[in-house]
Design a protein around this nucleic acid. Structure first.
Lengths: 334, 334
DNA sequence: TTGAAAGCGCTAACAC
DNA sequence: GTGTTAGCGCTTTCAA
């Protein structure tokens, strides 16, 4: 069943020009506040705009003037707050600069990412923003051929196409391992989610385990759950891990969502933190600061990554890599 | 400092036509798989497309054909997971139907919403999706004049412009009060965030307090924090509330984020739940199911709201109100 | 089954 | 300071 919305007889710039008794280009100049026109003309035009309820057509404007003011986002997920955070940082800057954000969700699937990037490129965006540096060769080729700016955020371990803003995930993994070792933990386990899809979590895991190994203190056990990260997955993951390896003294989680789940498991089972078991997360979510014991974790500049990337885009800055770093939060769970 | 991205000599449909040795309209028909053409022609066109790396220009296509396939979202916030949830529900449907999502963040400000809706309308979207039914008269007027479909989600208490999908917030507030009363609580308090801006939370609050009042058991005390909802705000809010009114037996929170903060406060202070204090939230976030005691709350169909609204949009269904209801989760904190 | 041509609504020279 | 005009890259009649 379809509904025939009465097709509005849309007001065009030509009609405004006629109503104001001026030429089309004059209306265009006034509206974009570009070029010169008299105060009087301006008032006449604005009056006509007001009276007719004219809404400029950016589709036509963009076609006529080449460069668009669209910025396209291909994000892995909307469930993981990390990506809304990036969008939030970016959208503030974009809105302040008269740019418009368009987005699509790849669900961590590189093939889907490729298809969605192709679809978004058809809108001739000024830039496209992607999560991480891992993409199909097809995606990379399209991006390069598109001629628009590319911003890859949240990962620095690899070769960017154009702009890269974020931090090193493998360095974050290493820093986490070093911290646990420094605190004297030796029987360390890991609870994580699907590392194939979330390649940034995979890089952290690698950095973490390699550092342990190098210290002669290899990872004792790991529990990797299928599916996305969640508090529930973290809780179940820790339960399984401890069932197999009850003598662990610390557990590294793939992120804070997972770690919070592990934390709840300990609360429910009366496992005392950190004396019986230490817990370490990743992301520095707000909720981890409010738990009875603040979560030990690594705080990442997610909002700032989106913001800086957007600023570089609107400024049309040269290709570059911006390392925003991360911050280790000692918390009380280690 | 700006960067001169080498302006790609973008391939146009005309060039494809020339390379394939056919007319432009033929290429257009083949690409949209619309109208008739021979198998042989099709192959020639596709070969040329492939060889030239042609990416259709949807800006031009949309201008030429009227109706766009953009759907615009004006959402209050990206920090509150509620709105990413709606986007998630909608974007799945839109991507499956070759529609493209564009969004902007209003920050719960009706004036800002109006400005952003105006900006998005300039892209001539097929539809615009908004949170709730409360908008400025200017916004409503623009929306009606736009001729595109309007979907208002997450609230049903008021008069929609076109499509409305969600549930009644005041009914949710009433149901929460009835539940607490039924369980025998009589000294009930409230901890909330900025109700002026979050009008849906305001409607729940009204429904809640009116029901208490009607039962001869008026709200004992309330703590309303400035700023957005968060676990931290909830924790501090409960602390303040209990400092003033230590003899409360139940507290209703403006949402689960706030309630989780309150839950943590109780854990930290050794306040036993629910015997000393009952806690009730709103939203049914996943994290509330993983806490040692599952949070008592109302689960709302956020993802589904986005999904159903998007389905009505792509189907161009007649104006209607879809009540998806909500579910009271008994949990263990009441 | 295919091509020619007329726009879609605007911007950007370029004249005046 | 302002109007005229030629496109921007496509879709869509309308003939052929």
């Amino acid at each position: 069943m379809t509904f025939d919305s009465k097709q509005q007889a849309t007001v065009t710039l030509a009609e405004v020009a006629q109503a104001a008794g001026v030429g089309e280009s004059t209306v265009s100049r006034v509206l974009r506040n570009h070029g010169s026109f008299s105060r009087k003309t301006r008032d006449r035009v604005m009056a006509a705009v007001e009276q007719l309820g004219y809404v400029p057509n950016r589709i036509a404007g963009t076609l006529a003037s080449a460069g668009s003011r669209l910025v396209a986002f291909a994000i892995p997920s909307l469930s993981n707050i990390v990506f809304p955070d990036v969008l939030r940082g970016a959208s503030g800057v974009l809105e302040a600069n008269q740019h418009q954000a368009v987005f699509a969700v790849t669900d961590y699937d590189p093939g889907r990412e490729e298809a969605l990037v192709a679809a978004m490129l058809a809108w001739r965006p000024a830039a496209v923003m992607l999560a991480g540096l891992e993409h199909t060769e097809g995606t990379r080729k399209m991006l390069r051929a598109s001629g628009c700016r590319i911003a890859e955020v949240l990962d620095l371990d690899g070769t960017p196409v154009d702009l890269a803003v974020g931090f090193s995930n493998s360095a974050a993994g290493r820093a986490s391992a070093e911290f646990l070792l420094k605190r004297g933990y030796r029987r360390i386990g890991y609870v994580g989610h699907d590392l194939e899809r979330d390649t940034r979590a995979g890089k952290r895991f690698s950095g973490f385990t390699e550092t342990l190994q190098a210290a002669g203190c290899a990872l004792v056990d790991r529990q990797i759950n299928a599916g996305p990260s969640s508090a529930e997955s973290g809780r179940l993951g820790l339960e399984h891990l401890l069932a197999r390896s009850p003598d662990l003294d610390a557990v590294y989680f793939s992120n804070d969502d997972m770690a919070i789940g592990g934390y709840f498991h300990c609360l429910a089972r009366g496992i005392s933190i950190p004396s019986q078991l230490a817990i370490f997360g990743y992301n520095g979510l707000d909720i981890g600061r409010v738990t009875p014991q603040p979560l030990s974790t690594i705080r990442t500049p997610r909002v700032m990554s989106g913001q800086v990337a957007a600023e570089l885009i609107v400024a049309n800055a040269p290709p570059q890599v911006v390392d925003l770093g991360f911050e280790l939060v000692e918390g009380a769970t280690v």
